[in-house]
Amino acid sequence: MPDAYALAKSLLFRLDAESAHHLSLRGLRLAEQSGALSALYPAAECLSPVEVMGLRFPNRVGLAAGLDKEGNTIDALGRLGFGFVEIGTITPRPQAGNPKPRLFRLVEHEAIINRMGFNNPGIDAGVANVRGSKAFDGAIGFNIGKNKDTPNEDAADDYLACLRAAYPVADYIAVNLSSPNTPGLRDLQSEEASARLLERLKKEQASLAKEHGKQVPLLFKVAPDLDPPHVSALARVFLEGGLDGLIATNTTLDRTPVAGHPRAGEAGGLSGRPLTRRSTEIIRAFAGEFGGRIPIIGVGGISCAADAIDKIQAGASLVQIYSAFIFQGPRLVKECSVALDGLPG
């Protein structure tokens, strides 16, 4: 059988990156609804599920936030072999995001630069879409953020609104503190600001757990552009504040790995293969600070099974992919999930 993804990619890569993104998700939904997707990608071989944060994951490989911002393609993505899908980033109110163009492929680096700016339909639409998913048996995470026009001093109110709305349907909730595309957002990664935010969110989490009769883990997502003292300071905050999990890492502002590329000067976050080493270093640093007390989801530059294994050996319990999935397709999901099956960590 011809490689269906290779054919689709050859057509999609003739379009600008954002148009291809929307067209591919629409195509996935149609293929799932028609049954064509299950014919092209039959059920994956049986893998050993893992338990992390009290949740069951059919395999260790998830889809990072940013691809399915609305939560309307979960069943189709699950059919491609993901053990968990993280939707968003979603904000309390819908927002259009930054002006276009805002998404760029650096093909020879297997990398992407984006400055999307949390374009999304709002938390209520995201919750409704997740409620409508029917076939996916993996875990669903909500990646939540603040609206662009919400000042940082009121950011906690936005995160709390999303936490309350998503709690009944989410398996876990990830707080995005680290996108470089919302002005001032990374300031929330300071020791003092993150401690205040975590305290308020954990208090609300406890209240919601009683109300809904279930514990939904709360995670923070951090940037790769942290120096060792900052990692140590945040680790103390997360340990003392009772954080349930960490996602490391988001995109980077560093352009050193792609210096000389015509798109290197584009504003936004760089993801993909150039981030591999730095992301793994940050995972290892946090894992050393945590001593096994807070689980880590490792993401950033996973382009092959060896990269995924490196993330687990650095201290991650689960991994996520995004950019390399765009370039390589579903075969990467299977390759990584099989390689990680039964691996200690």
Rank of each mutant, 00 (worst) to 15 (best):
F13G: 00
R14N: 09
E18V: 11
A20H: 03
H21M: 04
L25H: 07
L30P: 00
E32Q: 15
Q33V: 00
G35L: 12
G35P: 04
A39V: 14
S48K: 14
P49A: 10
V50W: 08
V50F: 07
R56K: 14
F57E: 05
P58Q: 05
N59E: 08
V61M: 08
V61W: 07
G66K: 06
L67N: 01
D68F: 03
N72Q: 13
T73D: 08
L77P: 06
G88I: 10
I90F: 04
I90R: 06
I90C: 13
I90A: 12
P92N: 10
K100F: 00
L103Q: 07
R105L: 13
E108M: 01
N114P: 09
G117S: 04
N120C: 11
P121Q: 12
G122C: 10
G122A: 10
I123Q: 02
D124E: 15
D124S: 13
G126W: 10
A128S: 14
D137H: 13
D137Y: 00
A139W: 02
I140R: 05
G145V: 05
K146H: 06
N147I: 10
K148I: 13
D154C: 07
D158F: 05
D158R: 08
A165G: 02
A165S: 13
A170F: 07
Y172A: 02
A174H: 00
V175N: 05
G184C: 12
D187N: 14
Q189D: 06
S190G: 15
E191K: 14
E191P: 00
E192N: 00
L197A: 02
L201D: 08
K202W: 05
K210N: 02
P217K: 12
H230D: 12
S232I: 00
S232W: 00
G241N: 09
D244K: 11
N250I: 08
T251V: 11
T252E: 05
D254C: 14
R255I: 09
P257F: 10
P257D: 06
A264T: 03
A264D: 04
A267H: 08
T280Q: 15
I282H: 03
I282F: 04
F290L: 07
R293M: 01
G300N: 09
I302D: 03
A306G: 02
D307A: 13
K311P: 11
A316W: 12
V319G: 03
Q320F: 02
Q320V: 04
S323V: 11
P330R: 02
R331H: 12
R331E: 11
L332R: 12
C336T: 03
S337W: 05
